[in-house]
């Protein structure tokens, strides 16, 4: 038996707002401002905040949809989505079973997770050279 068979009253998106989402939105704005002025990036862990489903829906609605969407397959799907505001990214991590394991707002030019790591670039370059050597 799953959770859905238990008579839990679900709140619609219109109510159930705790007011915390507005605070998160202000924090995003402040961090975006410091990214613009000082180049300082930041992360907000949505899992660490008492946000109701309605709060998250409200926040997603306010932040909107940007141009970039990246899907990653990292031991379960992960999803990186740019919001309407350049520099504000919404990250959603799932485990292989499909449950959400983490949800973050990252305020940066591009999320750390997407960037290729220098050490990986070096080893990639080495591997590619080995491949070319083998061709000859």
């Amino acid at each position: 038996m799953g959770l859905e068979s238990i008579p839990v009253v679900t709140q619609s998106a219109s109510d159930g707002l705790t007011g915390n989402a507005a605070a998160v939105l202000r924090e995003i704005a402040a961090r975006l401002e410091s990214l613009a002025k000082e180049g300082q990036s930041g992360i907000i862990d949505l899992g660490a905040m008492p946000l109701s489903p309605a709060d998250k829906a409200w926040l997603a609605d306010k932040l909107g949809q940007g141009e970039v969407e990246i899907n990653l397959e990292l031991d379960g799907p992960s999803h990186v989505r740019e919001t309407r505001y350049a520099g504000v990214w919404w990250l959603l991590h799932h485990n292989p079973q499909g449950a959400v394991t983490g949800e973050f707002i990252e305020i940066t030019r591009i999320p750390e997770l997407v960037l290729a790591h220098p050490a990986d670039i070096i080893s990639g370059s080495e591997s590619l050279n080995f491949l070319i050597d083998d061709l000859c």
């Binding site: 930041g42 992360i43 907000i44 862990d45 899992g47 660490a48 990653l72 990292l74 031991d75 992960s78 991590h93 394991t101 983490g102 973050f104 750390e112 997770l113 790591h117 050490a119 990986d120």
Partner: peptide, 26 residues
């Protein structure tokens, strides 16, 4: 077969679970 990104994702969720600041994941 565990990529660095998978590892980073794991650390991010681990840090979240441990109530550490999100930057601690990185």
């Amino acid at each position: 077969g565990i990529s660095r990104r998978t590892f980073m994702k794991y650390c991010a969720t681990l840090a979240s679970m441990m109530a550490l600041p999100p930057s601690a994941g990185i």
